[in-house]
Simulated assay, not measured.
Amino acid sequence: MSDFNPEKLSVTYLPPASIFNPIDNRKYTLTHSDATGDLFLSVGCHYDLKKINAQMRDEVLGEWRREQGQYTLCGKVYVSGGEFDAKLSEVRFMIFKKELPLALAAIVNGDQGFFTYFPWLLDAPIYMFFESVFDEFNQVIYFGTPRQYLIK
């Protein structure tokens, strides 16, 4: 995994979202540049669809959900909808799995002000959904809590 470098991260808040609202359905869109290694995080009430590269589909999406009184950070990555064969889907799955800690560090540190207002969310579980037409890559994996991705 690459180390998270805060200087490589640009954060954009999409109004009406801000560092202190909303909690429910707060959405994250994380994209990157292969050429520069820069990361781009959009925080809003909706996903920043214009930032998603339809050919690459290598974005990381996340949102806060409240279920039965507990908040969970739920995310998803797109492995394959059938346009990639099983071998390429496996490669994509392995890359996402390896790079997700970096992506989660970018999301947590990029929205660090939010956690100042809602510190209990630092201990919420993170679940990532790997979306694929191939059963072996169509999984939900637990990735710990935001606290473990926070840079002090």
Rank of each mutant, 00 (worst) to 15 (best):
G113A: 01
T116A: 01
Y142M: 13
P101W: 12
F118N: 03
L100K: 03
L100F: 01
V140Q: 06
I107P: 07
E90W: 09
A106W: 10
K97D: 05
T145D: 07
F130W: 07
F96V: 02
L122M: 14
P101G: 10
A103V: 05
V133L: 04
P125L: 10
A106G: 13
D111E: 13
S132L: 03
V108C: 10
P101Y: 11
Y142V: 06
F114D: 00
Q139A: 08
T116Y: 01
I141Q: 09
N109L: 12
F137V: 09
I95Y: 09
T116F: 01
F114S: 03
F115V: 05
F137R: 03
V108N: 09
Y117D: 00
T145A: 11
A103L: 06
P125A: 10
L100I: 15
A103E: 09
G113K: 04
V133H: 06
I126E: 07
S132P: 03
Y127M: 10
I126Q: 09
I107H: 07
W120Y: 03
E90P: 05
F96Q: 03
P146C: 12
N109A: 11
G110M: 06
F114Q: 01
N138C: 09
E136V: 15
A103M: 10
Q139L: 15
V140D: 06
A124Q: 09
F137W: 09
D135I: 11
F118M: 01
F137M: 13
I95P: 00
Q139P: 08
F130Y: 14
P119K: 02
V140F: 05
D123H: 12
Y127G: 05
L88R: 14
M128V: 15
F115W: 11
L104W: 12
T145G: 05
V108L: 11
P125E: 15
A106R: 11
P101E: 07
F129T: 03
L122K: 10
F114M: 06
L100G: 04
L100P: 03
V140T: 15
Y142L: 13
V140L: 06
F129C: 02
I141V: 13
F115T: 02
P146A: 10
Q139R: 15
P125C: 10
E99K: 03
L104G: 05
Y142R: 12
M128L: 15
F137G: 07
F118V: 00
M94L: 15
E90A: 14
M128E: 01
F129W: 04
Q139S: 11
I107V: 15
K98M: 05
I141S: 04
V91A: 07
F137H: 13
L122G: 09
A103W: 13
M128C: 09
L122I: 11
N138T: 05
P125R: 10
F93C: 04
L121V: 07
Q112T: 12
T116Q: 03
S89N: 13
K98N: 06
I95M: 08
A103D: 13
P125W: 07
E136H: 13
K87F: 14
Q112M: 12
D111V: 08
G113H: 01
F118C: 00
I126A: 05
F130P: 01
F130C: 09
F115N: 04
F134K: 10
M128R: 02
G110V: 11
Y142C: 13
W120F: 07
P119Y: 02
V91Q: 10
M128T: 07
Q139K: 15
E131W: 02
W120N: 06
E131P: 00
G113N: 02
V133S: 08
Y117L: 01
A124N: 07
P119I: 01
Y142T: 14
V91Y: 08
P119Q: 01
I126V: 14
